[in-house]
Amino acid sequence: MIKIAIGIFVIVIAFLLGIIIGKYKERSLNLKKLKEARKDAVKRSRAVLNGQLSEQLAPFLPDFPADPTEIQFIGKPVDYIAFNGASQGTIKDISFIEIKTGSSTLSPVEKTLKDVIEKKKIRYIEYRVDFGKK
């Protein structure tokens, strides 16, 4: 009878130790995952901030493809539209400019915009609003 009680006691102790060790390992793994997630979040945040800074500074770099006085910041789905020649009074052409840094690539919407522009599927629409006349 005592042997059975000791056996049950050992099993219960082993079971409880297993639970404690398992919870410790789970907590340790969760802390490691949390630390990695925070590191990744900081890395992504820096990449976004660097991209935004690059978008704002790019027009003033020497190799920028347009005159900074002739561009308009749009942001989405393209960063800038350049009205080339506008500062001289006559627009010669229009450029859509997307700023990228590092190994970043065009988003799906940016890719379709590029495709539409390259296929010259562009329209000019004059839309008039007149609230005063009946």
Results as ranks from 00 to 15, higher is better:
R128H: 02
D115M: 08
Y80E: 04
Q72Y: 08
V78M: 05
M1S: 14
Q88F: 04
L31S: 10
K39E: 15
V42Q: 02
I4L: 08
S104L: 12
F15W: 13
I13A: 13
A82F: 07
Y24G: 04
S103V: 08
K114E: 15
G51R: 00
K120T: 09
T69K: 15
I6E: 13
S45I: 06
S107W: 08
K76R: 13
S28D: 09
I21Q: 01
L17E: 07
V78C: 10
I74N: 07
L53W: 07
R38F: 04
T112G: 05
K100V: 04
I91H: 03
I117V: 15
E110W: 06
Y24C: 04
V10G: 04
R44K: 14
I91R: 00
F64P: 02
K39H: 01
P59K: 00
A58R: 00
D63A: 12
I125N: 13
Y80H: 06
I117D: 00
L61Q: 13
Y127S: 12
F96L: 15
N84V: 15
Y127K: 11
I6S: 06
I74H: 06
S45D: 13
D130L: 00
K119T: 07
D115A: 12
I13P: 03
L53M: 13
D115Q: 15
K121H: 10
A47S: 09
D40T: 07
G75C: 11
D93T: 06
D63S: 12
I94A: 09
E36F: 06
K76A: 14
V116W: 08
Y124M: 09
R38L: 02
S54P: 00
K43H: 09
V129W: 01
S107V: 08
L53N: 11
F83D: 01
L34A: 12
A47Q: 02
L106Y: 12
V10W: 04
P68Y: 07
G102Q: 05
R128P: 00
S104C: 03
A58F: 03
E126K: 13
L49M: 13
L34P: 02
K35C: 01
G85R: 02
P77E: 10
V10E: 11
I81Q: 03
Q56A: 15
D115N: 13
L34Q: 14
P59F: 01
A41H: 05
P68V: 09
L57N: 05
R38K: 01
L34F: 09
I97Q: 10
S28I: 05
V48T: 14
G102L: 08
A58L: 03
K114H: 12
R44V: 06
T69H: 12
I71G: 01
K32H: 12
R38V: 01
K32G: 04
I117P: 00
T112Y: 09
R27Y: 12
S54A: 15
A5Q: 13
D40K: 10
E98I: 10
V10C: 11
G85V: 00
